[in-house]
Structures are given as C-alpha cells and as structure tokens.
Design a protein around this nucleic acid. Structure first.
Length: 943
RNA sequence: GCAUAGGUAGCCGAGCCAGGUCAAAGGCGCAGGGUUUAGGACCCUGUCUCGUAGGAGUUCGCAGGUUCGAAUCCUGCCCUGUGCACCA
C-alpha cells in the first residue's frame, strides 16, 4: 500500500475529534496536566508555532500511553494592542498590512471585511489557522475547554484575580514613562510608530548649574563627569525660555519646556531668553562651584533633553573636537563677544584614569581615529568606544572624595542619587532617537499615573523563590535564570490605556495588559468548559474564592463552585508549563509569582520546560518579510507526521532548530521507507514465539531502546528519544536482516515493530496509529507504553554479535590495505592454552602476578612462559576496558563455534571462500598470524 | 558590559556533565560496487594524511595547564547566536 499521508491523517484526525479521544475528565488514574503558552492570533500559524505546540503534545501522548489521564488544553490570547493595532492598519488600508494579510496569510477579499473588528480579526486566525493547524498536526487537545482572553467569563476570573491581589496590597499606583503622541494627545504603542520603533526610554540626569537667580539644567548621561566640566554649550539658533518648573526658575529650550509638562512637571513659561544674553555668560557648577562659560554650538539639539549640555573635553571626543573648533573659530566667537583669551584659558580637566590612555583619553582616541572635524563620521564610533571603556574600567581620580579610586560602573548611580537627594540634580526622560507617530505627530516621553504589580515586595518575592526551589526547570541551567529574574524584578506596570482584555476592576479606564492577565489562567482551563453553563453574573469574586480557596473562604459558598473545585483539585498543580525561552524573564516568572501568592504550596507548578528559537533556512522567521512557512503549507507538502518528526527530532526542545526544506525532505523519504518496511513486516506470516539467537539479540537491543526512549521522554528530550526509537532501532534491524538471510520466525520483528510504533506514536501519531492497527488489529490508544522485558536481556549474545561485527570489519580493513585480488582468507582462533590464560586472569581480578604463579605451576602451561608474559599485556589492556560485569561472560564465549556458525554470513558478505582454523602446532601459518592470535582477536591471513 | 548558549572533519550535527573502548555516532553530499530497473527506492564499501596486514601520524576555535593519558577537566584569549523588560 502506498504511503499517502493526507488520507491517513484525515482519517485519524476525524476519528479523534468525533470520538472525543483527547477529552480529559477526572478519573481514578494519576493525572498529568500540561500547558503551553496560548497563541496570540494576530497573524497566521507557521512552523515555529507548530513546534511550540508539538513538544507538549509529545509529552501528553507519552503520559497517556503510560496510563495516566492527561489534560492538554488550548485557548487564545487576544489581550492588549497588537490585534487592535493590526485592525487599525487594515482599516487605514496600509499596503504593507494588506500585503501580509493577503499574500502571506492568504486572506481573501471577501474575508477582509470580517477582519475589521478586533475579535473578527482574532477569530479569523483562530478558525482558519490555529485551530485547524493544531488539529491537522494531530495535537491531542481537549477542545471543550477552549476560550479567548476577551471572553466575559474569563474576564470575571481576571477580575477576581486582580481584586484579590489588590486586597492583599500587591498593587500600587505610580508614575511611568509612556510614548505619547503630541499631535493626537494620546499614548501610542510600537505599532503606531512610523519612525523610531526601536527608540528606548533613557533617563537623563539634569545638573542644576546656576546663572544669576536662575537654574540652567545641563542634561547628561554621565553625571559622574561633573568635576570635569570646562564649559557649556547651547544652540545659538534655538529658542530658550525662562520657565517656572515646580517652583524653580529654569532656563531651558522651548521644546524642553513642553517635555517637562508632559512629564508631570508644573511648568509655566515666563518669557523667552535670547541666546545672545546667555552666550559668553559664566554659570556656576553646583558641585565644584567653578564658573564656566557658555559657548555657542549648532550641534546642540534643543529638541533633546533640556537643550543645554555641559562640556567635558577630557573624556568626550565630541566635546574635545567642539572645543578645538571653537578655539579655532576666532571670528565667530568674537561675534558673540567671546574673547580669544577666555577660550584659550579653557583647559580640559581629567577626572579619571583608564588603562591604555593618557591624561586626556578623548584626545588620544580622537588622534588615533584621525578625527579633526565634528563632521567626521567616525566620531560616533570613537565616542562609543571611549564611553564603554571609561564606564567599565575608568577609575575616578583622587578629588572625587569617597568615590575616588572606584570605577565609573560602580559609582555613577551612587553619585546620581546622592545629588538627587540634595536637589542639585534632577532627571528627565528622553528617547534614544526621534520618534514619529503614524499620524505624523511628534512622539515624546510622557509620564502617566499607572498601576503596578509589586514584584519587588519582599514577602511576595520570598514566596516566589520558594516556588523555584521545588521547581523542575528544564533544561536545568534555566533554574538560575528564575532566581536572577526574581531578584531583578521591580514594579511591573500592569495596565494600559486601551486594547482588548479585562478592565481594571476599580478603574475601568484601564485594561489589564497581556503579560499580567496570563499568569494564572492554567487553573481556568480545569473548569472553563463547565463555567459556560453558569450565568456570567454569578461568577463574582465569592464564586472564585470558593472555587479556588475552598468552602470555608466565603460565608455562603456557591455549591456549583464547590463542585468545580473537585475538578480543579484533580488536575492541579500544572505538571509542566511549556513556553519559549524569551518569556522566561517575564511571563514565566510572573506565572510563578502569581501561583506563589494565590495558591497553596501543593498547587504550585511542578516544572517548566523552556523552548528554543526557530530559524528558517538559517535565518530568522519574519511574517512581514514573507520569510515564513505556514503550517498549512508544510502539512500539505510533507504530511503532518513528517513536519512533527522533523521539528521534534532535529534538536532538543530547548535548543534552537533550523527548518531546512532539504532536511525535511529527507525525513519524508525516511518515513516513506519506514512505511514500506513496516508493511513488509506486517505481511509476514504469523509464527509462534520460537526465538533464534539473533532474535534474542534483537529483543535485547529493543530493551535498551525502550529504556533510553522512556528516560529521555521523562525529561522532554524529544531528540534523544526519537533518535533512539527511530534511527538506532533501524540500525539494529538492518544488522538483523543482514545477518539473518533466511528468516524463519516473524515473532521477534513483529514484536519490535509493535513496541516501536507505540514509542513513535507521540512523534508521528497518524502513521503509528494506522500501522499499529494494521499490525495488531487493536487501536494504539488502548496500548500500553512498552517496558523492557528482563527475559530478553542477552548480554552474551550482544558481545558475540560485536565480535562478529569486529571480525568482519577487520577483514575488510586487511583486504583494503592489501589492495589486490585474494584467493584465500583464513581465520585462526587461538589455541586452548590462551583461553586458559584469559580465564585465569579474569578469575584473579586481572592480577598478573597471581596469574603467573598459578599458571607456572602447570606443566602444560609452563612451556608457554614467554608467550604468556607477552600476551598478558595485550590481553589485560583489552580486559581492563571491559565493564566488570562483562568479564565473567567473556569466559564462556566459544569463539571457534561462534565464527563457525557465522561462516555462511562471512562468505556472503565477502563474496569468497573463508577457512576457519583453530591454532595448533602443526598448522600452516605463513606469517605467524595464528600464533599471534588472542582471545577476541583471531588471526587473519589473506593472500 | 552582564547573563546565557555555542565554536567538532566538505556541510549539518552527536560526543563533553561522570577523562582512556574517539580518527571521533548519525545524516547529507561525493566516489566505487551490487541489486533492481515500478519507486523521491534499497544494500555494501570508502570518504584527514600515510600504509601490500587489522597499523601509524596529525586533528575536535586559539594559547597554556592538570594527568601515565584530554574533543572531554582547569586558566586566559578570540569569534558567533540570544536576552537585558514594561513588548507580545
């Protein structure tokens, strides 16, 4: 029968769905509850998603065959702005968005209309991509429990969760920087941004230099350079204003005044200050009390920070060049009334030492780069290099008081906070680059009142650490990551101004953001399908209190909640949570926090499995660039089993993998071959269990494969497991067939196939189920995961097969080296006395002395005295490499009989007559091969 | 910079944690042979260098070290991927 993936796959998929095969209910069995991060249906499903969901499916299928009740549920995450943003872009008819939807995700013109509401958009991708994709991939999901995070019942659950956290004091209000469009007067998200999508928030330190009765705040990212300031720069062509900022009189650029008012400052602009009145003036450094001059500089961007910068020429290549240029530009400076001698008197001040540089590092690096002008494009690179160097290895000079002798890295923040306390410093947010909104408006940093989850709360943190202590982190090296993340987490802003999802219960202007509404939902799966029959309005906080905290938690518990509690208790805790490794430092850690706080220790997650990234043909996947392979396409081209097997066997789940179509092709060919061979086996006539030696050998190998596959799957090692059961077993079978040209019994290979299909079924469920039913007549679902059968362990037979294999390979080697036509090959097994030597060595724990003294007492052995000495060395070297439990077995091997029985095999393999002799004194032995023979190393003579 | 994963023969990729059985699995590619020519087929042999005897030599990012012995352990260095948040 021809292997046609699609017909087999459709048959089984339909059968599983209509039978509800994977609908999981509480039972007397042990429970396994496995979850994986629910997908975000803002686009199509590609093979990267396929792998994410195939990995937990393997585990689910494996545990099911081990006799457990396994719950593997699925839902859809639609919270937040990505879908809303995508819909906006569609409605605005943005060409790129239309192209992605139509050309890459295959949305038809007719369907486009359905996508014009956020939930319409989400449901399109859920229905047309994710659910069908998952079903086509054969994921063993209980679909009754499906929901979206925008469902009203789910919102009730989130409402309960946040009310509970808030009642426990784990939320707080505070200010937070957001991207704010000054045109639309609204916060914006990354998707709303036209230019500067990668811009980050940066906190500038403002140093309050004074001039007359005003403050001119100098913006800097390097507050520790305050003692190296020689002058200040403002842009003569920009507009500066005097403004009252939080009660202080500040002189700042016009733009800066607007920024401050966005950043929750109280700003009143009093008047414009012409730049001429500032340039040439002296201002006072609040730390050193030095007076420094204000110079004009057109490179100063008044739209960045305060529009006034301080100059530290000794340590800033920019400033060094700018100062030099100013000194050279005598006429220009004179026009501003700045005298030459004032310029000349400006000397760089070195504030730190850094290895490999002289007193003025900026000068050194400018010289080594050969930079002479501020227009030089390599100035940026020089600056970057020096800043890095100084930050990590710059040591502050002696005049830094308590900070002297310390590195910039350890003192920058200390210095900043010390003077912030003293109100000599201040701060403001700024972007790392210009940001423009899609509406064309300027985007600025605004600070906004927001709600935070207090992940830095000490007692909460401690509970989270306790969860990690008992967590099975896969791979093990991730465990430390959780500790470090918990250590490093601060407050997390958990609401947004808009987007899909659940409103903050006590302030419905805000929506709980996606990483915050996905922290406890695994528990929701356990009862989601039952909730649908309960009116939404009954799902109040008391209901969930009763459900999750028990009947005693509320005065009059809802009996329905108490009933559901049983199912929750059956499934919980989560055995394994699967997710991608980039979610470790947020989602997965949040997940631990919320479980730590809201649930008892017995309900804490048992383990987390973190998955690696996927590449496509060696490059990152990207929907917008069209560099993706959709699941539908992959399944149609290769078949679902091939897609799964490739994704699961080419790398361990936590390792990065690379989808290469030529490699996937190879897998398809291999499955094709496997299908054909399985058919050959299935069509063999039934025989009774009358086993040959080789059958025992094969079954012994099967035992080892079962062992390895089982152990590996317990640790999610899908690669090791699939390699063992597919490739290693395939190798054994190949040897078996090679050795066994005249098969008499089919029992062994049918048994191997039966076990193999069960073990392969987590990886290639369709093909395995089909073949298993053809082989046994029984459904695979009812089968039991194989366990090694001790009666088939045949270590002796395995050693014997190894010897045959080694001898064959030695003969090949000899033949290759001689490289001429041969007429004879003779094999000599060693004389009996050599086996006596072997036995004596083994019986005396490989002790040479004892062995010698025993053997030399024997007349028959004494005559071989010299040879015994010589051979013992070689023999001992061999024996010492053997596992100790093997040694006694070695004694019982009859090499002559073994090779004698394998003679037809050797002759078939080598295509010529082979002679087998036992070493004897009167034997023809042209080059002493017989006399050199040793146990397990027979002599080979060829001519 | 910090953290983390890695750097193995033409390519992909095991081995490294628990040092010797490692010239180093397997796959792909390539070469030779067989078999079948219905097959995207299958089987065998070979694929660092040298070698008319199952061997020797030089290899596992670079440089050292520990050891009788290192792809494996230690130290330093170079290079690559990823993360460093308020975004799912």
């Amino acid at each position: 029968m021809e292997y046609q993936p699609s017909s087999i796959e459709n048959k089984w998929k339909d059968r599983w769905l209509s039978n509800g095969t994977y609908e999981a209910n509480p039972s007397d069995n042990e429970s396994t509850f496995i979850t994986v991060a629910y997908p975000y249906p803002s686009g199509g499903m590609h093979i990267g998603h396929a792998r994410t969901y195939a990995v937990p499916d393997v585990y689910a299928r494996y545990r099911r065959l081990c006799g457990e009740s396994v719950l593997f549920p699925m839902a859809w995450h639609v919270t937040g702005t990505p879908i809303v943003g995508a819909v906006e872009r569609l409605k605005n008819k943005e060409p790129e968005q239309l192209s992605v939807l139509q050309n890459i995700f295959g949305v038809s013109d007719k369907e486009l209309d359905e996508l014009k509401t956020p939930m319409g958009f989400a449901h399109h991708f859920i229905d047309k991509h994710y659910r069908v994709g998952m079903q086509n991939l054969g994921l063993s999901i209980d679909w009754r429990r499906e929901f979206t995070t925008n469902d009203e019942r789910y919102s009730k659950f989130i409402t309960w969760q946040y009310n509970t956290l808030n009642n426990r004091g784990l939320l707080e209000k505070g200010l937070h920087p957001v991207k704010f469009c000054t045109n639309e007067k609204n916060p914006v998200t990354t998707h709303d941004i036209l230019r500067g999508e990668n811009a980050e928030f940066q906190e500038y330190t403002l140093i309050k230099f004074t001039w007359q009765d005003s403050i001119i705040p100098m913006a800097t990212l390097r507050p520790e350079t305050i003692r190296g300031v020689t002058n200040a720069f403002i842009n003569p062509k920009s507009t500066y204003v005097e403004a009252i900022v939080d009660g202080e009189r500040w002189i700042i650029s016009q733009e800066a005044a607007n920024k401050f008012s966005l950043q929750a400052r109280d700003v009143t602009i009093e008047r414009e200050v012409p730049t001429e009145t500032l340039i040439g003036e002296f201002i006072q450094n609040p730390i050193t009390e030095d007076s420094v001059i204000i110079l004009p500089a057109t490179f100063v961007d008044s739209d960045n920070a305060t529009g006034a910068v301080m100059s530290v020429p000794a340590h800033s290549p920019d400033d060094w060049i700018a100062l030099e240029e100013a000194k050279r530009d005598v006429d220009q400076m004179a026009a501003y009334g700045i005298e030459q001698k004032k310029l000349d008197s400006i000397m760089p001040i070195s504030i730190l030492t850094v290895d490999g540089f002289g007193e003025f590092p900026a000068q050194d690096i400018v010289n080594s780069f050969g930079i002479t002008s501020s227009n030089d494009s390599s100035l940026k690179q020089a600056t970057q290099e020096l800043y890095n160097k100084e930050f990590h290895s710059g040591i502050l000079r002696e005049f830094y008081g308590d900070y002297s002798g310390k590195s910039v890295e350890e003192t920058r923040d200390q210095i900043k906070y010390e003077y912030l306390e003293l109100n000599i410093f201040d701060t403001m947010y700024e972007f790392t680059e210009d940001v423009i909104c899609r509406c064309g408006g300027n985007v600025e940093v605004a600070t906004q009142e927001t709600w935070f989850l207090r992940y830095n709360d000490e007692s909460w943190r401690k509970k989270a650490l306790n969860v990690v202590d008992q967590l099975d982190a896969i791979p093990p090296n991730t465990k430390n990551e959780y500790y470090r993340t918990i250590d490093w987490l601060k407050e997390w802003p958990c609401i947004r101004n808009y987007g899909l999802g659940t409103r903050l219960p006590w302030d419905s202007d805000y929506v709980i953001e996606p990483l915050s509404d996905s922290t406890l939902y695994m528990s929701y799966y356990t009862i989601s399908h039952h909730l649908n029959s309960i009116p939404v309005e009954d799902l109040d906080d008391a209901f969930f209190d009763a459900l999750f905290f028990g009947a005693d938690a509320v005065p009059s518990p809802d009996p329905r909640a108490i009933e559901l509690r049983q199912e929750w208790e059956y499934w919980y805790p989560v055995n394994y949570r699967c997710s991608a490794n980039d979610l470790l430092s947020n989602h997965l850690t949040f997940f631990l926090y919320h479980h730590a706080e809201l649930f008892e220790e017995s309900q804490w997650p048992y383990g987390i499995m973190v998955m690696g990234m996927g590449l496509l043909e060696g490059e990152k996947m990207s929907s917008s660039k069209g560099h993706v392979v959709l699941v539908e396409e992959a399944v149609t081209t290769y078949g679902s089993d091939t897609v799964r097997f490739f994704l699961l066997s080419s790398a361990e789940p936590w390792q990065d993998y690379d989808w290469r179509s030529d490699q996937v092709d190879v897998i398809r060919t291999q499955l094709f071959r496997f299908w054909n061979r399985s058919f050959d086996t299935i069509s063999l006539p039934e025989t009774d269990q009358n086993l040959s030696k080789l059958d025992h050998w094969l079954l012994s190998k099967l035992n080892q494969v079962i062992e390895k596959t089982t152990t590996s799957l317990n640790h999610f090692e899908t690669r090791t497991a699939s390699q063992a059961v597919f490739y290693e077993l395939e190798d054994h079978l190949r040897w078996y067939h090679r050795r066994n040209s005249s098969s008499q019994s089919s029992w062994a290979i049918k048994e191997v196939l039966r076990s193999r299909l069960i073990m392969l079924s987590p990886f290639m469920p369709f093909l395995s189920n089909e073949l298993h039913e053809l082989l046994t007549g029984e459904p695979l679902d009812a089968a039991k995961w194989p366990s090694p059968s001790s009666k088939f362990n045949s270590p002796l037979t395995e050693i014997e097969e190894d010897l045959i294999r080694t001898l064959l390979s030695d003969i090949h080697e000899v033949r290759n080296v001689i490289n001429k036509d041969l007429s004879t090959i003779r094999i000599y097994t060693p004389a009996a006395w050599k086996y006596r030597l072997l036995e004596t060595l083994i019986d005396n724990n490989l002790d040479m002395g004892t062995t010698m003294s025993i053997l030399m007492k024997d007349e028959d052995m004494r005559k071989f005295g010299n040879e015994i000495k010589r051979f013992s060395t070689t023999l001992l070297a061999y024996l010492r490499q053997q596992p100790t439990d093997r040694l006694s077995l070695l004694k019982s091997i009859k090499e002559f009989d073994l090779y004698s029985s394998a003679m037809p095999f050797f002759e078939k393999e080598l295509g010529m007559k082979i002679e087998l002799h036992e070493e004897a004194e009167d034997l023809l032995d042209p080059s002493g091969k017989a006399s050199q023979s040793l146990p397990f190393r027979p002599g080979i003579y060829a001519e």
